[in-house]
Amino acid sequence: MTVYVYGITDAPPPPVDDLAGVEGTGVRTLVQGELAAAFASLPGPEPPAATPDALMAHERVVEALMRQRAVLPTRFGTTLPGEDDLATVLERRSASLRDLLALVRGCVEVSVRVRWETAVDPPAAADTDGRRYLESRARELREVERAVDAVHHPLARHARASTRSTPTEGGVLSASYLVAADDVRSFAEQVRRLQDADASLDLSCTGPWPPYSFVEPS
């Protein structure tokens, strides 16, 4: 048997009887002290395969929890050997988990991705010219800095917390913002204003998401 975890909330947990989880399992909860976890008991030892259906089921459960409580969502595929192990994690990490719940309470995650319209020639694969390599790297880093100054810093001022990274699948910057649930529309408005003010900026903004990017203790 494997315990598949959706997320952690304050105790007592919200009702989960009506929720359907991954692989057709029901959702259960476990209370340990002031914390609770929502999980599924899977019959086999393996985590569920990362199919679109399973990812969607995971997301639905986490969002249902999020609508009722502050939640620390776990990434798809997080498993533990048994319920005892889950209780142990909640007990051992109780202080930091409660701090994180306080951080995300009342907030959702909004995700922003930045591209520049101006196409940059990628360095040729066989380019062994040292100076040209460094120049292209310098150009890439400058584009990231421009994106941080033009987009990330202004938006971060409207968020309780933020995190950024270089996207692995295109674009120069991908950032996540922890925004008060009531402020999502006005935050999106800020994004649109930045987009409209600069024709070379290509922004996408999605949300509200569970605060996946803000559940690691700092």
């Binding site: 990812l55 699948e169 996540s176 994004v191 987009q195 996408s204 903004c205």
Partner: peptide, 17 residues
């Protein structure tokens, strides 16, 4: 919330694994 001028939007789920 805001569609990109190009391509598809994607959220934090992209890194779900």
């Amino acid at each position: 919330l805001v569609a990109p001028r190009s391509g598809r939007a994607s959220g934090p789920r992209a890194g779900a694994t």
